[in-house]
Design a protein around this nucleic acid. Structure first.
Lengths: 338, 338
DNA sequence: ACGCCTCATGGAATCGATTACATCGAGACG
DNA sequence: CGTCTCGATGTAATCGATTCCATGAGGCGT
């Protein structure tokens, strides 16, 4: 592959001049510029990003470590992150942690070794020494969706508190009184936070949240299924189940269906994270929608600001309740979807 | 950040020795090795992958350019690719083309500039000069799922012909006679191939495929909706619709629902690409499942072989029909899917 | 006409690794 | 006991860019 030296030779100038042309340095004559550009054209020259990165100590690359690529919420997030990054001239390397702390650390380490300019992380667990060290070491880091307490970096996330309040009110209005939740891992902030918000909302209606009504999940479909099975085996099973993410809702759907329950009638189901398929399930699933695209964009902009030496603030955007039929038939506006 | 020189100083040896220890070169004394390792530990040294890549001319990185990250089929593919690559010591950089040839070329160019060791592509269009040039230029390339005729590189894909034959037979047995297809872009191989297989299967049952029954889609949900609307506006609408990918099936589902049709009774629906949600739609959707995981693994192994100087063959794996209820009620084994 | 300033340009150092080659010492062997 | 071989180690070149510094050529003010 042609290098900068070949271009210099072809154009009859020095490598310094070629580099100046390529980097739009003002001090280059029109004639030289033209000759260099012509040489670049005929040789099909492309600068070696590796060499450039070594010299300039920046890769124009962002790392994004997400908890689970198979989760539509995260792929949508990844997509918006890539888009926003591209607009700013960055590439994105995605690492998929599959909800496994070891894999997460593997990716963080690899990304750091590659000298990415900044890191976007949605941590799978509550405390990674590696990440702490990286943050202290000065690597620009921004947390998205979830975060790790004690690591002082900007956090970009959605606040589901209000929407969870709306959801509980909705369920209460439909006559549901025995509300259960399938929680995410306690080690994740979204895992514990959603339970707390749910508990607080219940309290607002004078309802308690017994331990038996808190299922332990891991944000994967299978765990949603297991937790639901356990609920149904209870002497007094819940009459509404709220899954803290869309995959666990899928698992819950599996389990409820397997037990022959009519969702929306015999039992209510709702989920955190809205995804396109919820419109088409049987019945359509009531969900809490996050502004995923904006989350991704805000995270990238915060990270870019951090890289440029700024001190961007944390960002919290509101989530909102989208009512469908999985909690009962009297949805206020049944034709609002689709 | 500490460099190899710092480690050398700390350990009291030369940089060459440090490098030899790190690369497991045999000619290093036990004493030196121990001192180097200790120095690496105390300094928390990590080799700079950028510098290493520049020198060795290999990045241990694979590029993966897929047509659409929001499509569950491709994210599953991406996941298996990353997994297989990681097992081989490679990282993967994913580029999302969003079915846009210009974006695809942007990613290919960026990846090439970064000197990735090899490229995995599922092309969005039928002819990219850039990709042709790269292939000729000696960049190891493997096509997955789709390919570009005329570019002589290994292709790893699933053959849906037999499964489409099964699907048509299934529909025919259920009394469906007016079968329509929502095709992908003619520029993609999967776009045209699936139509041809469908047409051939119809012919086997003495059925024709009128032009009006071939909807033009672009593998996105909106196009599936539009194509379906057009079918329903026909004087004699089809009684079965086959969508060439899962997103267009989602769109078709939208449209059929909006027209108040009972899917499985009034009209049949089937899709290429099986995804977890199809079990939970109303009704569950009959689909053709690809061995996505194996596809990803095979593609990575072919690419790795190519990088190592081998000449791996193309791979074609069979797809299979998964019958659910969207084509009619007499599914042969109604409880096979939970 | 002379010196000074600016602009265009080239030479060479540099980034952080890997690795060819040189060197040195020790053990083997005649 | 000299020489030959081999293992351990260091010095320096190298990868392909960017960029500091020196140099030379004009342009301009006085």
């Amino acid at each position: 592959m042609a290098g900068i030296k070949d271009v210099a030779a072809e154009a009859g100038v020095s490598v310094a001049t070629v580099s100046r042309v390529l980097n739009a340095h003002p001090s280059v004559s029109e004639a030289a510029r033209a000759r260099v550009l012509a040489a670049v054209e005929t040789l099909g020259y492309r600068p070696n990003a590796v060499a450039r990165s070594l010299r300039t100590d920046q890769t124009r690359t962002l790392g994004l470590v997400i908890s689970d690529v198979l989760n539509p919420y995260f792929t949508e997030l990844a997509r918006s992150v890539e888009e926003a990054a591209r607009a700013l001239g960055y590439s994105v390397i995605i690492g998929n942690a599959d909800e496994r702390p070891d894999l997460q650390d593997h990716h963080v380490r690899t990304l750091l070794d590659r000298r990415i300019d900044g890191l976007l992380v949605s941590p799978t667990d509550g405390g990674s020494p590696l990440m702490l060290e990286a943050a202290r070491g000065g690597t620009p880091i921004v947390f998205v969706d979830r975060w790790i307490p004690g690591i002082d970096v900007p956090v970009v996330r959605a606040d589901g508190r209000a929407a969870i309040g709306d959801l509980v009110a909705h369920l209460y209005a439909l006559g549901r009184r025995r509300l259960a939740i399938i929680a995410g891992p306690a080690a994740t902030t979204t895992g514990s936070e959603r339970v707390e918000a749910f508990r607080a909302a219940l309290a607002g209606h004078g309802l308690a949240l017994p331990d038996a009504y808190v299922g332990q999940g891991d944000f994967q479909a299978a765990s949603g299924r297991r937790a639901t099975e356990r609920f149904l085996a209870l002497p007094e099973p819940p009459d509404a189940v709220f899954a803290a993410d869309n995959l666990m809702a899928l698992g819950a759907l599996d389990a409820l269906r397997a037990h022959g329950l009519r969702i929306g009638a015999d039992i209510a189901l709702a989920a955190f994270d809205d995804i396109p398929w919820f419109v088409h399930t049987d019945p359509p699933v009531t969900a809490i929608a996050q502004p995923t695209g904006e989350l991704g964009r805000a995270a990238v902009h915060a990270l870019a600001a951090l890289i440029d030496g700024g001190t961007p603030p944390s960002v919290t955007l509101p989530a909102r309740l989208v009512v469908r039929r999985s909690c009962g038939e009297d949805a206020p506006n049944p034709r609002s979807e689709q």
